[in-house]
C-alpha cells in the first residue's frame, strides 16, 4: 500500500488559507473520487471540497475551527500499490489468446 498526501489546494481569488468547519469523512473511511471531504470557510465563502481521488482516508489534518494554509497537508489517503498513474489505466495481464496456429516442416539441415 502507498500513501498519497492531498494538500489544501489553491482555492483561487488569492486566498492563502481556509478554516475547517466540519469534516465529512473520518480516518478509516473509503471514499470515492469527487465525494465531499470537508467543509471549509475562507474569507470569501464557505465551500465543500471534493476528493481528488478514490482511496482510504488514513489521516485528516485540522480540527473544526483550525486554519490551514494553502499547500499544507489536509488529507492522507492509502491506495493499493498497483493504482494507475494520474493518466491512463493499469493494463490487465490476461491469459494470452490466439487464433493463429503455426504450421511448418522444419528441415533441420
Amino acid at each position: 500500500m502507498a500513501e498519497i498526501s492531498f494538500p489544501l489546494p489553491d482555492l483561487g481569488e488569492g486566498l492563502i488559507e481556509a478554516t475547517v468547519l466540519d469534516w465529512l469523512v473520518s480516518p478509516g473511511d473509503q471514499v470515492e473520487r469527487n465525494q465531499p471531504l470537508v467543509e471549509l470557510e475562507t474569507s470569501k465563502s464557505a465551500l465543500e471540497l471534493p476528493s481528488p481521488q478514490a482511496g482510504k482516508v488514513i489521516r485528516i489534518h485540522g480540527a473544526p475551527g483550525e486554519t490551514i494554509n494553502v499547500g499544507e497537508p489536509l488529507v492522507v489517503f492509502e491506495v493499493p500499490d498497483n493504482t494507475a498513474g494520474i493518466v491512463g489505466t493499469v493494463p490487465k495481464d490476461d491469459a494470452p489468446k490466439r487464433r493463429v496456429r503455426l504450421s511448418a516442416v522444419l528441415d533441420e539441415d
Binding site: 491512463g88 493463429v100 503455426l102
Partner: peptide, 22 residues
C-alpha cells in the same frame, strides 16, 4: 486508447510474422 490493441503488435500478428518466416 480504444484502438491501441489494433496498433500495438498483438499475439496473432507476431505469430503470423513467425509463420511467414517458417
Amino acid at each position: 486508447g480504444d484502438l491501441e490493441d489494433e496498433y500495438i503488435p498483438n499475439i496473432d500478428r507476431i505469430l503470423l510474422g513467425i509463420q511467414r518466416v517458417l
